[in-house]
């Protein structure tokens, strides 16, 4: 800018009144009052202090580095057996936590990557095969209802027998699927019978398992 804005131009010869008209329409800053304030204010202050000290006294917990002191037993793994839940319920919870991100809420999977669980013989067929897939995962292509899917499935051997049985039961009986319950013993057997490190491939699965068990399939 080649022109200095006039508000800090020192050669400005006009009077103060003109330059700072705005300041002259102000009132002087009035001196503060010295009112004591309403009584209820002191009541509020006093009760807040009381609450504060009560809160510290009640919830201080202990002077240490431990978190979560107030939530009883938060850090201790309970030894008491939980009341048994129906396998379907156990499975629903596991499915929501671990399976939905690939197979989706509706069991439809993702085209090209994660196969649908709905109307799939891999799910409703031989329970031993299903359990083994859950325990060891799958690599490579998998054909479901004529379409090829190639997303890898991780091994879930860290889940308990009950969780595996539950989730197998859940997917066999949701979204219109209907097949019999997978027993916890089936999972335990499956764990013992087949020990492998690598995930399954479609070929291997077909070599080892029959698509249906004579007693297993209802469909």
């Amino acid at each position: 800018m080649n022109q200095t804005p006039e508000f800090f131009d020192s050669s400005d010869k006009r009077s103060m009144d003109e330059i700072h008209a705005a300041a002259f329409r102000e009132a002087k800053l009035p001196e503060e009052g010295a009112e004591p304030g309403p009584v209820w204010l002191y009541v509020v202050i006093f009760s807040t202090l009381c609450f504060g000290f009560f809160y510290i006294g009640r919830y201080l917990g202990e002077i240490s580095d431990r978190p979560h002191v107030l939530e009883e037993g938060a850090m201790i793994v309970s030894n008491e057996p939980e009341p048994p839940k129906p396998l379907f319920k156990v499975g629903e919870k596991v499915y929501r936590q671990r399976c939905v991100s690939c197979h989706q809420e509706n069991g439809q999977g993702v085209e090209g990557a994660y196969p649908p669980l709905v109307q799939s013989n891999w799910v409703t067929g031989n329970p031993d095969r299903l359990v083994s897939i859950l325990l060891h995962g799958i690599n490579g292509n998998l054909t479901v209802n004529g379409k090829v899917y190639n997303g890898n499935m991780p091994a879930w051997e860290t889940l308990t027998d009950e969780q595996i049985a539950g989730v197998a039961t859940y997917i066999r009986n949701s979204w219109g699927n209907s097949a019999d319950t997978v027993q916890i013993a089936t999972v335990a057997d499956g764990r013992k019978k087949i020990t492998r490190v690598a995930p399954w491939t479609e070929q291997e699965l077909n070599d080892v398992f029959k698509p249906q068990l004579a007693s297993g399939a209802k469909k």
């Binding site: 202050i45 202090l49 809160y55 510290i56």
Partner: peptide
């Protein structure tokens, strides 16, 4: 540690004093 949190919660509630004043 829980006790730090408790102190902060109490101090937050006591903020009522300056605010209402």
């Amino acid at each position: 540690p829980t006790w730090f949190v408790t102190i902060s919660v109490a101090a937050s509630v006591m903020m009522i004093i300056p605010v209402v004043t």
